[in-house]
């Protein structure tokens, strides 16, 4: 392996470790999206006297929508502190390819914000009376879908990081673009509940993840260069 490739690997490793260390030092970053996910999904059964069977049938949609919102809200902090203290400028000036750097940064962020959502989702499934056949597709679907959501949301975050208040604007930008993941993700669970084969839908979710992983870093990089000026 050449010296340059080794340098890149070390750099990516450092980026990943840094994301994890930040999460450990400020646990709110991990806990808040999780709490949002739990509380927001618990609001749906409270909003009306729902039949348990009806609740179980809309549970996939509820879990996916709230997971999507939780990912989006957690993404706002992805570049914020780096932008404020100038780390982002150093990142853009770094000789290492920005593409891989950003990919790993989003991966690190997903590990501390997205993965916990996947882990706690079955518990919420129980609360929402999700039928037994739905758990495996729910977990696998979220595992494939939430990284895609993180990547798409990172584009919006990168575009709005230079703006003072970007929360609602981020939602307007990101939510329409997240719809395919939502449709296929909730669709996987729904299809499994109807006893139909789900392999094709998993492939589509995987395809979306590959597409997002290959193209989103380019858009994130372009957006960051615009925001840091």
């Amino acid at each position: 392996m050449t010296r340059q490739a080794l340098g890149l690997l070390a750099c990516l490793r450092a980026t990943l470790l840094r994301e994890l260390q930040i999460a450990v030092s400020s646990p709110g970053k991990v806990v808040n999206p999780l709490m949002f996910f739990v509380i927001a999904s618990a609001l749906f059964p409270l909003s009306g006297r729902l039949d348990l069977a009806v609740l179980g049938s809309i549970a996939p949609g509820i879990l996916w929508v709230t997971a999507l919102l939780a990912v989006m809200l957690s993404m706002e902090g992805l570049f914020r502190s780096d932008f404020d203290d100038g780390t982002l400028e150093q990142l853009l000036l770094s000789p290492q390819p920005l593409y891989f750097h950003l990919l790993v940064k989003v991966l690190g962020h997903w590990l501390v914000t997205g993965l916990p959502l996947v882990v706690i989702a079955p518990l919420l499934g129980l609360l929402l009376n999700l039928p037994a056949a739905g758990y495996q597709p729910l977990i696998l679907g979220l595992l494939l879908g939430t990284p895609t959501l993180s990547l798409v949301a990172a584009i919006g975050t990168a575009l709005t990081v230079g703006l003072a208040r970007s929360g609602l604007l981020l939602a307007v930008l990101i939510l329409p673009l997240s719809i395919p993941v939502l449709v296929f993700g909730a669709g996987v669970v729904d299809t499994a509940l109807n006893g139909l084969p789900v392999a094709g839908l998993f492939s589509l979710l995987g395809a979306l993840l590959l597409l997002a992983a290959s193209l989103a870093p380019l858009a994130i990089a372009a957006s960051l260069r615009i925001s840091v000026q």
Binding site: L159, S223, I226
Partner: peptide
């Protein structure tokens, strides 16, 4: 919604140059 998103992003920037570039990136996404 996508059209509205592009317009909202454009109007959120103070600087004309940043607004143009950001809106262009979002349009291509």
């Amino acid at each position: 919604f996508v059209y509205i998103g592009v317009m909202a992003l454009r109007s959120a920037f103070d600087s004309e140059t940043s607004a143009s570039k950001a809106a262009s990136v979002l349009t291509l996404v």
